[in-house]
Design a protein around this nucleic acid. Structure first.
Lengths: 206, 206
DNA sequence: GCATGTGAAGTGTTTCACAGCA
DNA sequence: TGCTGTGAAACACTTCACATGC
């Protein structure tokens, strides 16, 4: 993976820290202690310090961390210095809702295009992002050097579309299908399995 | 939590095993070995066996596990013997897409009602599930003894709505807001943070 | 004095490897 | 023989506790 030995979970927390730091920056806070930032992020202070230490030494003893500098370092670490283009595949029910979802843009991702086997139907739903025929998937990925894709196709199609994405050069897939995708080692898949999350809750309610 | 000492992650995998078992059952398979089931679920055989062993002994040495029986046991363990009623709060963009999402019903959950501060607007989007004024939230939860809620309100409102849910008796929250909810210990929160998942991928693409 | 950075201890989870049983 | 069930080893991650430095 290139980078050294950093717990996967620490990467997730980095995103959370980044959000908290942005909020602090908006409030003109310049320095923050591990205790304060940890509380905002919902973790223990020691964990926060250890997470940050994986990447270097950014704090001043007796004082804390510089909000803006730390925020920028995390942004860079997460590969988000530049606006990252993303495509969405499968503009059905969930897919077109995600197209309208503001959250991605707010965090610095631009959904540049959507693909569907029936692009006309999707356009009719009032989506502002271009919906393109799935036939032109590979062409687009290569032309625009797309690295990230959001996959919302029906479960039967998921694996075959995933294969096409990977072959065309996609390196990260955010997968909404309830299926374990098989991909080569260089590709990272993040699963968002809505029904599974709900089932998981079922276990904990008495 | 009542139950003994079972890794949280094992609970998640239980849901996946359950899905695989259902598929096997549909294909009239009666017995399955840990190797086969593990491959389908994307885990190692030893892990599958250990996960199942937390709940008892269901396999036959030299043969494997009985598909139907094991499937039922997992269903019961996950608290899904009966159809579980769920409410959704916040029928905005993402929320109303989730209302139309078929996946929850497929896995045995019934979204019985949605709540919004502007219920009329949501109804106009063609949702078939009743959308009720947020004012009647507590009333409904208590009347129907709702235990699970899907939370899709704007981030500013998330914590206060969560408080209302918990006070009314909700024990599990599937939270789509990018915020760390603070709840009492008896309540379980599952976070689905879409932007965070995308950010996480950003780290791994070169 | 105060808050970071970090070895070391602790906790939780996964994997191994093999005994035990159909 | 084949496959489960499980102690023990390995690994991964978290927390502690304190030396270090501003």
């Amino acid at each position: 993976m290139g980078k050294i030995d950093i717990p996967k979970k620490a990467i997730y927390r980095l995103s959370i820290y980044h959000r908290c730091l942005q909020k602090l920056h908006d409030n003109n806070v310049e320095t923050v202690s591990s205790t304060t930032l940890a509380r905002a992020a919902g973790v223990k202070p020691a964990q926060l310090r250890k997470d940050l230490a994986y990447f270097g030494q950014f704090g001043t003893r007796g004082l804390g961390y510089p909000v803006e500098i730390l925020s920028n370092i995390i942004r860079e670490t997460l590969g988000r210095e530049h606006l990252q283009p993303v495509i969405l595949v499968g503009a059905g029910n969930l897919g077109s809702a995600l197209l309208r979802y503001q959250g991605f843009g707010r965090e610095g991702f631009e959904v540049v295009a959507a693909f569907d086997s029936m692009p006309e139907a999707a356009i009719a739903r009032g989506v502002m992002i271009p919906v393109i025929s799935i036939d032109r998937l590979e062409e687009f990925i290569e032309e625009r050097a797309i690295k990230l894709a959001i996959l919302c196709v029906p479960v039967e199609a998921a694996q075959s579309i995933a294969n096409r994405l990977v072959n065309a050069g996609v390196q990260g897939i955010l997968n909404f299908s309830p299926i374990v995708l098989e991909v080569t080692e260089e590709v990272t898949v993040n699963n968002v399995d809505l029904a599974l999350e709900l089932e998981h809750l079922g276990y904990f309610i008495r």
